[in-house]
């Protein structure tokens, strides 16, 4: 899978919000790629810019205040940011699909499930209403509905949260997208339903060989689905690694903190560990490393300069002075658990 080509590649993508007084950069020079059939997870706390990154790919950053100011998004060998808005209409929902965090509100309450699947199919493919209906039923069966025919005629409010998220997945996959962006797809669901949805997504991505960008703050979900992980903090990528490397040998103190704050079954713990403080807001980003205010290893240099994202080992990138040559003698530090 490593040798396979990139489905999408982000280069230095920067997205800002403009208010009357200031420019707030919420996505700061973010670069990563996703390969064919791969599931890439973007992990971070609320406010880390992960959702904005995904909306930037779709070019659905809330207008008129939000704008993608820099960078390239290479998809199918073309830079999406250079394409006219018109061209995006055939990319969205067709080549790249997206499902959202809130299945309860992401479907239009006044149209039937069938209508919402059919319109998606008929918009991007030359299908008659009957063909679209048939395809819709197939899609619903594929995401695990046993009474797909009836579901087509039902309204979103008649379905449970898990069912709605399945419907969203069916809609998103109906045009065989090359890339599926799932923004916290299981966060709003019960734990048992979460597992079902994750299973479904894993099976479908194998079946269709489609790539997934999975946005989540739940490392458990990451472990279930992803092959590679990008950790974001305050709008920047702070670490990127294959899943095993990240869990076994996290390099960035923030990743370490995230892993430590997961409950463990095999160790006795009185309290869960947590990272003190919260993600700074974009108007409050520190001058140096953005994690400096919460970092247990903060050094003098961290408050003054921004570290750069460096490839420490093959496929393992980190943005931290602890791992920059010549800043500290001992590149390795002990995990503090």
């Amino acid at each position: 899978m490593d040798q396979q080509q990139n489905v999408i590649e982000l280069k230095e993508v920067t997205t800002s919000f403009y208010s009357r007084k200031q420019e707030l950069t919420v996505v700061d020079r973010v670069s990563f790629n996703v390969k064919q059939g791969e599931t890439l997870a973007i992990v971070g706390e609320s406010g880390s810019g992960k959702s904005m990154t995904s909306l930037s790919i779709m070019q659905l950053v809330p207008a008129p205040n939000g704008k993608i100011t820099n960078g390239e998004i290479i998809f199918n060998g073309e830079d999406l940011l250079k394409k006219p808005e018109k061209a995006m209409y055939t990319v969205r929902g067709n080549d790249i699909s997206m499902i959202f965090q809130e299945p309860m509100t992401s479907l239009n309450p006044v149209y039937t499930v069938g209508e919402q699947i059919r319109e998606q199919l008929m918009y991007h493919q030359p299908l008659s209403k009957r063909e679209a209906h048939q395809k819709g039923i197939e899609m619903l069966e594929r995401v695990g509905f046993s009474r797909a025919k009836e579901i087509m005629g039902e309204y979103p409010h008649q379905l449970s949260g898990g069912m709605r998220q399945r419907v969203m997945i069916a809609i998103a996959l109906s045009n065989n997208p090359k890339l599926l962006i799932a923004d916290e797809p299981t966060t709003a669901l019960d734990v048992t339903v979460q597992a079902q949805i994750l299973d479904l997504m894993r099976n479908l991505s194998n079946e269709y060989d489609s790539s997934i960008i999975l946005i989540t703050h739940d490392l458990g979900v990451v472990a279930e689905l992803a092959q590679r992980v990008v950790v974001m903090y305050a709008g920047q990528v702070v670490e990127e690694a294959a899943i095993e490397d990240l869990f076994d040998k996290p390099l960035h103190p923030y990743t370490e903190g995230l892993l430590n704050s997961m409950p463990k079954l095999d160790e006795e713990q009185d309290r869960l560990q947590s990272i003190p403080g919260a993600v700074p807001t974009p108007d409050n980003f520190p001058v140096g490393c953005r994690f400096v205010t919460r970092c247990p290893y903060a050094m003098e240099v961290c408050t003054k300069e921004q570290p750069t994202l460096l490839e420490k080992e093959s496929g393992h990138k980190v943005r931290c002075f602890l791992h920059e040559e010549g800043v500290v003698n001992d590149g390795e530090h002990e995990r503090s658990s």
């Binding site: 209409y89 055939t90 959202f100 809130e102 809609i171």
Partner: peptide
Amino acid sequence: NQDYIRTARAKGFKEGKVIFKH
């Protein structure tokens, strides 16, 4: 500002369809 409007946009619909249908 509702989520289903964002969904409609994510489905690739043109602004007119988003506004008048959804």
